[in-house]
Amino acid sequence: MKKVIVKPKVLHNIPWHYCPGCTHGIVHRLIAEVIDEMDLQKDAVGVASVGCSCFNYDYFDIDMSAAAHGRAPAVATGIKRVQPGRLVFTYQGDGDLCAIGTAEAIHAAVRGENITIIFYNNGIYGMTGGQMAPTSLPDMKTTTSPYGRNVQETGFPIKMTEMLALQEGCVYAERTKVSNPASINKTKKAIRKAFELQLSRAGFTIVEILGTCPTNWGLDPLQAIKWMEEKLEKQYPTGILKNSKGDSVICDKK
C-alpha cells in the first residue's frame, strides 16, 4: 500500500495532552512539515509560551526554550541576537500574546526582530479553564464573563496582528484558519513564507491562526469548527494584513 502521508520528522512520537477536537495539533504538524521540507531541524529553535501549548517543547524534536508567560518574543530576541542564522519562532496563544505579552510582541515588531510569531487565536484562555481573553468576542460567555463579555466594561476584542502589522519592522502578517483542507494548506503556505522571509533577514513576521477550543467553548469538535468560521472569523477576517514588500493592506499608504 502506498503511504500518502507520514508523521513529520520533527514531531516526537509521544502522547499529546490536547483535548479531542482541538486544532493545536494541526498547527504543530504544519510547523513540523515546513521545518522538515526546509530541512531546518538542526537550525530551528522554538520558543514555547504559557497556555495550552506550553508543553510543546516536548512535541517538537528541535531545540526549544520554554518562556515565561508572555515573554516568548523577548526570549526569541535573545536567542536570535546570539544566533542570527537560525530559524527562531515563538508559539503563543491569545492570552499569552495579547494580554500579558503585548509589550514584548509589539516591541519585537518595532525592532524588526528577525523572528516569527505563530499566534494561535481561539478567543479564550484554554489551559486555565476558559477565562475571558482580550480576543473573546462581544457577549461571549466565559468563566470570567459568565453573563457574556460586556464590551462597556471589558472592552472590545483586541486587534493584535493588525497592531503588529502597523509597525515598520513587521514585513509579513497574515491571518489564517485551520477549519478545512484548503485553509490548512493556506496556513502551511503562510508559515513557510514567514520562515523564508525570516531566513532572508527581512524582518519581523507573524502568522495568526484561528483555532478551536471545543472544551472551553462547550461545543463538540464539529460545532467548534463551525463556530470558528461563523463567529471567530467574522471578528477576525482571514487574509494578508501585510506582505513582504512592506505594502500594507491595513496601513495608510504613503
Partner: peptide, 10 residues
C-alpha cells in the same frame, strides 16, 4: 521584564 527574558534566551 523584556531585558531579563532576553538574557534567558541568549
Amino acid at each position: 521584564i523584556a531585558a531579563i527574558n532576553m538574557v534567558y534566551g541568549a
